[in-house]
Amino acid sequence: MKSVSEQFQALRDRQQCALIPFVTAGDPDLATTAIALKTLDRNGADFLELGVPYSDPLADGPVIQAAATRALQQGTTLDDVLELVKTVSPELQAPIILFTYYNPILNRGIDTFFKDIAAAGAKGLVVPDLPLEEVSGVLESATQHGIEVILLVAPTSPKERIQAIAEKSQGFIYLVSVTGVTGIRTEIQSRVKELLEELHSLTDKPIAVGFGVSQADQAAQLRTWGADGVVVGSAFVKRLANTDDPQAGLADLEAFCQELGKAVKGT
């Protein structure tokens, strides 16, 4: 499996925009998550963002919060998630990016955490409550174990901060498209276009846009605005959760992934 940077380079060489679906590990159960990852991988996903369920997900809206709560009620632990990554990653072409809050990292021990996720086969990491000022404490371990740590830029970030974040972020830069938490929005703020232009003028690193992206036309719009990647979370999580029948949820997920894949590739 390629590193996050290598995968983005390969996409750039083909002048393609990346589709980055997000699912919460353990919702509705770990077996379904495993099938979901493989399904997404086969149907247009270029990276897979996997959420580690957490008790207090401050940056998440109701859909992903509820998914995390259900996953925790199922007894899903970080060990389970890493076991899942270990099992499925050899079958995937898309690099796995873990999404976790900071406390579970701290609890495991920073170096142990990076060693373990690297051994499981994860390639990248997003920690929504670890901003630029706090991230330096993890970068050394991350580099040592070959994990790329992706930093977030928000619509509220001033220019000097954006520049500093862009310099430190590894793999790509995660541009948060809304002033708010994750979730489904009906349209993308036109401000995102300006932010993308500003970011591109400051850095050569790829930029992926997420938070609030839930439809194919939004994904296509982001591609035309210059995004190198599009992250879609709640809309996938909802499809997996919104059914009593996991098979139907997976079928829905597959169709939606194909639709989004076409939109970001412009085909």
Partner: peptide
Amino acid sequence: PLGRFGQFGGKYVPETLMPAL
């Protein structure tokens, strides 16, 4: 200046809030 009392404190929040803080 970073809001630390020894090892404690800091600013572990989403980027969106950093400018507001």
